[in-house]
Design a protein around this nucleic acid. Structure first.
Lengths: 207, 207
DNA sequence: ACCGGCCTGGAATCGACGTTCCAACGTATT
DNA sequence: AATACGTTGGAACGTCGATTCCAGGCCGGT
């Protein structure tokens, strides 16, 4: 076919993710995207239509490549409490180690910014929250079946409790909280809902 | 004196706080401020110098008027765990009730936005974090003296744990978490660090 | 080698924003 | 009542953003 694309749009989306993540959605200009992708404005607009749609694609890509891997191992419940501890271990590692340490969570940042009120953005983020909540709920259910949980705590309240910790980590990891403190805090938090006598591991190991 | 101001700058700052809080720092334009204050650009610039400095003043005002009242009762330690529970009760109420319900926390939003990297902003927010952490630490210390705390948890890790909950509430209150879930989650979180046998109240009552 | 289409690069457009400027105004003093 | 000085309102300025336009280029099919 004549006039086929000279580049892979998927690569362009990949290149945009760290821009939004590090500098922010509104703060990232088209020029930044041009520089990062090596493409021209024309090619970007011909391919993605607008900065908004490209940013939406990048947000979805971020969730798929950076958040889902942390959450997905919980789907189905895993082995209960230790799986939940491992989830937090992966989260803390993702937020505090490697090249993207202290970048925080793009989804949380977008949520708290003006973009969070955009209908498309809100839908994407709501779906992600729902997924995370379900995964935690399943894991708590499994933990209950395995007798790892105190019986005097409400499941939904505990889901909320774990979501609070998750978002807390997303925020605190950006402003100086160290890995050790976060891990100890999570271990204390999970020990708190563990059944007396259970020996289920609650230490948030980074995988 | 000839040519005295025809308005009170303090009132102008008060009028700017809800703009930044609801729409965001970068998203609030000078025109929005002109409309909200009823003042002209000239008066604003003559008084505050720049949008940046006016925004800084509004951020300080927000912390003084809306955050300090929630935190300050903890200074000195209060009566330990019940004071901490009351702190969370005030926080949840502030975030979920009244005209500013679901507005989230301006400080957290600014922290996660690009403005969070501005030196002046960073300094203001760091001081606030330090104040909150100290207040929680003092209250935990008092709780320990009163025998309300489990002895197998590290104090600093517990401070971090409470900060995670605080920031979690600031985020989650903005996207659909209801008062009851948040309160139950906090009650569970505080019961978790309470000494076995202690009858200290952990329910986050909104005052 | 030719052709025709879409892709490409860079310049041009259009609007919004922060900031500045200036003439007119109001007030406390004389 | 006249004066003097800072404040005030609104227009004007320059910058930078996203988006669009157009001439030129590249490639597959013939």
């Amino acid at each position: 076919m004549p006039g086929s694309k000279h580049f892979d749009p998927e690569d362009a989306i990949d290149a945009v993710v760290p821009l939004l993540w590090r500098r922010g959605w509104a703060e990232t200009g088209i020029q930044d995207i041009v520089d990062a992708t090596g493409l021209s404005r024309s090619s970007l607009y011909a391919t993605f239509g607008s900065k908004h749609q490209l940013s939406l694609a990048a947000l979805r890509r971020y969730l798929r490549d950076y958040v889902d891997p942390v959450v997905t191992a919980l789907d189905g419940g895993g082995d209960g409490l230790p799986s939940i501890a491992a989830f937090f271990g992966r989260l803390i590692k993702a937020r505090c180690w490697g090249a993207r340490a202290r970048w925080g969570c793009l989804a949380t940042a977008v949520q708290l910014s003006a973009q969070g009120e955009d209908p498309d953005v809100a839908e994407i983020l709501a779906a992600q929250r729902k997924h995370t909540a379900k995964a935690l709920r399943d894991a708590l259910g499994r933990a209950g079946e395995l007798g790892q949980l105190r019986t005097d705590v409400d499941t939904e309240a505990t889901v909320e409790y774990l979501l609070l910790l998750t978002q807390g980590i997303n925020v605190r990891s950006r402003d100086g909280a160290d890995v050790k403190s976060l891990r100890q805090a999570v271990a204390a938090a999970l020990s708190a809902i563990r059944a007396p006598g259970s020996d289920a591991d609650t230490w948030p190991q980074g995988k």
